[in-house]
């Protein structure tokens, strides 16, 4: 918009002259957007950011390093990391199969990849719990060998593997299918073995997508609640996840404590996102 409307040559700046936007609705659409974003996202998050300091910075630190909270954060972190790593391999493999092969049932498999997105977490939670409980289909089998899956960190890990799978597959799949088969064929004609082709040609190409899928799966795992709490058993220090501790603190009306745990979780998530973002930038610089 012109900062100043000149009135030389008898030119009177009319209203329309100041409106340099041709497409209508700027004020209204941006107004609605900012209203929603402020009321639904920004103000509530400010409430979260301002709450933990009630008992000073040391109160915040004390909460985070409280034995039970620290154990929960550690369990959430490790299970999410491990589940995301497993999904990294399995996700690439399934994406590869879906992109590179034709086989009966392919479209069905493709559609069902999104099931963990579509299925309400409480449903996945009770279903997984029923399967892996000591009297369940799989849980019963392992119970005979004295291995507990449900009500242990293994259960949390399994729930997070379930929830994280679509993130990796859906990140990698489009990149793989865009990758020209000719590039692979060129590598082959130059004498590369299939493994070499994968390592030197395909992997670098899908790396950025892989990293973003990984970070999404990890962040989801850190915050996941519904599909985990049923199978986890929620034994303090053993199989209690960080989000559950927020609920526990709220039940004790310890708002500051709940907010501290929440911020602790966000800090871990953002640290991972930031680290992966840096890695991605590094790859981007190499032109990948």
């Amino acid at each position: 918009m012109p900062a100043e409307i000149s009135s030389q040559d008898g030119f009177i700046a009319p209203k329309a002259f100041r409106r340099t936007r041709v497409i209508p609705g700027f004020t209204m659409s941006l107004g609605i957007t900012i209203f929603f974003v402020s009321v639904i996202v920004i103000i509530p998050l400010l409430a979260l950011l301002m709450r933990p300091w009630e008992n000073g910075f040391s109160g915040f630190i004390d909460t985070l390093f409280d034995k039970r909270v620290f154990a929960a954060l550690k369990i959430s972190f490790l299970c999410s990391l491990l589940a995301a790593l497993v999904n990294l391999f399995v996700g690439v493999l399934i994406a590869w199969v879906l992109v590179r092969y034709d086989f009966p049932g392919k479209k069905l498999v493709d559609a069902f990849i999104d099931m963990p997105f579509a299925l309400p977490t409480a449903v996945s939670g009770i279903a997984l719990s029923a399967i892996y409980a000591p009297n369940g289909w799989i849980g019963g089998f392992f119970d005979d060998f004295g291995i507990k899956i449900a009500y242990s960190p293994i259960g949390i890990f399994i729930a997070l593997v379930f929830i994280g799978l679509p993130f990796i597959v859906r990140s990698v799949q489009p990149v793989l299918s865009e990758l020209e088969a000719e590039v692979e064929e060129a590598a082959e004609t130059l004498g590369a073995s299939p493994l070499q082709t994968f390592n030197h040609v395909i992997l670098p190409a899908i790396m950025p997508a892989l990293l973003s899928g990984f970070s999404l799966a990890f962040a989801r795992g850190m915050g996941e609640y519904g599909s985990v709490i049923f199978i986890a058993g929620n034994i303090p220090y053993v199989s209690e996840i960080a989000p559950l501790l927020i609920v526990v603190k709220l039940e004790e009306y310890d708002y500051a404590g709940a907010a501290s745990v929440g911020i602790g979780m966000l800090m871990i998530s953002f640290a991972i996102l930031f680290a992966l973002n840096l890695t991605q930038r590094y790859f981007a610089k190499k032109g990948l």
């Binding site: 974003v37 409430a47 609640y225 709940a258 998530s269």
Partner: peptide, 28 residues
């Protein structure tokens, strides 16, 4: 603005509930 719109995707559902308690709960 774009990142703020995306933000709820990366929030734990429990945090998405917690913030409302911090606003409108008994001690909010």
């Amino acid at each position: 603005l774009l990142s703020i719109i995306d933000l709820p995707f990366s929030l734990s559902p429990v945090i998405s509930g917690l913030v409302w308690v911090l606003m409108f709960g008994a001690q909010g």
